[in-house]
Amino acid sequence: MDQKVVLITGCSSGIGLSLAVRIAKDEKKRFMVYATMRNLSKGELLVKAAGRTLGRSLEIKQLDVCDEKSIKACVDSLPERRVDILISNAGMGLIGPIECQTIEEMKTVMDTNFFGLVRLLKEILPDMKARKSGHIVVISSVMGIQGILFNDIYAASKFAVEGFCESLAIQALRFNLKISLIEPGPVVTEFEHKVYEEGMKTDLSKVDKLTADLFTNIYLKNYNQIFSSLGQTPEDIAEHTHKIITMDNPPFRHQTNTLYTPMTTLKYADPHGDLPIDIFYKMVFEHDKVFNASLNFLKLLRWRSRKSFTLDKPQS
Rank of each mutant, 00 (worst) to 15 (best):
D111Y: 00
N89M: 12
E59A: 03
R81Y: 08
L58H: 04
D67L: 00
D76T: 05
E80M: 11
I98G: 03
G96P: 04
E80H: 11
P97W: 01
T112H: 06
I60S: 03
I60P: 00
E59C: 14
G55Y: 02
D64Q: 08
R81V: 02
P79W: 07
Q62N: 10
P79R: 14
S70V: 02
C66S: 12
K61H: 13
L94P: 02
I60K: 07
R81S: 14
V65Y: 02
L94I: 15
Q101S: 12
L63T: 06
V65Q: 06
V65E: 01
L117E: 01
E104N: 08
M106A: 10
K107L: 00
D76Y: 07
E68P: 09
Q62K: 15
K107Y: 00
G93L: 11
K72G: 10
G116W: 06
E68T: 14
I103M: 02
D64I: 03
M110S: 00
R56H: 04
T112A: 03
I103V: 05
G91A: 14
E99F: 04
K61A: 13
I95R: 05
C74M: 10
R81I: 03
Q101M: 15
M110E: 10
L58S: 10
E80Q: 13
S70P: 02
I60V: 14
E104M: 01
L117W: 06
V83K: 05
C74H: 08
N113K: 06
I103S: 07
K72P: 01
C100T: 13
A90H: 04
I85N: 05
I85V: 14
V75T: 04
D111L: 10
R81T: 04
D67P: 07
Q101F: 05
I60C: 07
V109K: 04
G55Q: 00
C74Q: 03
L94R: 12
P79F: 08
M92K: 15
N113W: 04
E59W: 02
I95N: 08
L117T: 09
Q101H: 12
K69Y: 02
D64M: 05
G96T: 11
R82A: 06
E105N: 09
G93N: 11
L78D: 10
E68D: 13
E99I: 05
A90Y: 09
S57D: 15
D64F: 01
G93S: 13
M110L: 14
T102H: 08
I60H: 07
T102L: 02
S70M: 11
F115W: 13
I60D: 08
V109D: 01
S57R: 15
G93P: 03
R56F: 06
P79C: 12
L63G: 05
F115G: 07
S88D: 12
R56N: 15
I95F: 05
E59H: 14
E68Q: 13
A90E: 07
C66N: 15
A90G: 12
E105T: 00
N113A: 11
I95T: 12
T102P: 06
T112L: 08
T108D: 03
I103H: 02
A73V: 09
V83I: 13
E99V: 00
G116T: 11
V83M: 10
